[in-house]
């Protein structure tokens, strides 16, 4: 039986309210007698954070060691994806709720990768790990031992939500959203403030990209801003329309997954692609056009 949606009034305003759950909803669901076919997944920047304590029953999916291919710079293929999910007790019918650190960057990234494989019911925990912790909710170090289930081997469908470098070159002149910090956008910084230099040889942004740092979509407590606030940023201020063909990018595609989620599921944009090659590819590519300077 499908797990019901969270009918939180804040979510009801969004284009796809079924993509979010609140901490209240999740806590109630987990403590109910019959939580249903629900698996909670934690996905963090720090590979050990889950192990220090996580939502009871949650399993870990690491963005790097689980979702990325070990050799090629790409996501895992269908067999590997099926194995990773099957080991975690996730079938194609399971409702997956993902949460993580850093305002859900990696959770949104994992959700986006699950979407590449067309997983039907995948939701984000609004506010992520930080809100769950701030509210003093239960954490445990007990790692669940899910029964191995069969997840089907399904093709990855990149085209509709993922842009590769050539797609971006063909897209120039249409809306691009650069979600990095202003210093990265202007070219002064080659990485996030306080983050390691990850080896981009050129600073700046893709020509024509608008600078809309991802964090503008998040409230102080890490939850998403409400629909009216988001529309004021992306529609009124930036002049984007839900029918626009939009590409979002950052450094390696995690922060732009957050913005992809906002545009697609909260504001109902129909054609948003995440360019996961992002600046670590564009800023190193020979001969591609670059702009520098502030917006």
């Amino acid at each position: 039986m499908p797990v019901p949606f969270d009918d939180n009034p804040k979510f009801a305003e969004y284009a796809h309210p079924e993509r979010l759950v609140s901490t209240d909803w999740l806590a109630a669901r987990l403590s109910s007698d019959d939580p249903g076919d629900l698996v909670v997944v934690e996905s963090d920047e720090d590979v050990l954070l889950y192990d220090t304590g996580h939502i009871p029953g949650a399993v870990k999916v690491d963005w790097h060691t689980d979702l990325n291919d070990r050799v090629v710079r790409d996501y895992v293929g269908p067999e590997q994806f099926a194995r990773i999910l099957g080991e975690r007790g996730i079938t194609r019918d399971t409702t997956v709720v993902i949460y993580g650190d850093k305002s859900n960057w990696w959770a949104a990234y994992a959700l986006w990768v699950f979407t590449l494989f067309g997983h039907p019911d995948v939701r984000l925990l609004d506010g992520g790990r930080a809100l769950w912790v701030a509210e003093g909710r239960e954490l445990t170090r007990e790692v669940p031992a899910p029964v191995l289930v069969e997840y089907p081997v399904v093709e990855r469908h990149d085209a509709s939500i993922r842009a590769l470098k050539d797609d971006v070159l063909a897209h120039l002149g249409r809306p691009l959203v650069d979600v990095r910090s202003p210093g990265e956008y202007s070219g002064e910084l080659l990485h996030m403030p306080d983050y390691p230099q990850e080896g981009a040889l050129r600073g700046g942004h893709i020509p024509g990209a608008r600078s809309v740092p991802w964090a503008r979509a998040a409230a102080e407590d890490g939850t998403f801003k409400n629909r009216a606030e988001l529309e004021a940023i992306y529609l009124t201020e930036q002049g984007l329309a839900p029918s626009d063909d939009v590409v979002a990018y950052c450094r390696i595609g995690e922060r732009s997954s957050h913005t992809w989620f906002v545009l697609t599921h909260l504001l109902g944009f129909e054609h948003v692609r995440n360019y996961d090659g992002s600046w670590t590819e564009w800023g190193n590519s020979v001969g591609v056009p670059i702009e520098v300077g502030s917006p």
């Binding site: 720090d46 954070l49 220090t52």
Partner: peptide, 9 residues
């Protein structure tokens, strides 16, 4: 910080 257990390790 406790939020960075890998680095602490």
């Amino acid at each position: 910080p406790a939020e960075a257990p890998t680095t602490r390790g």
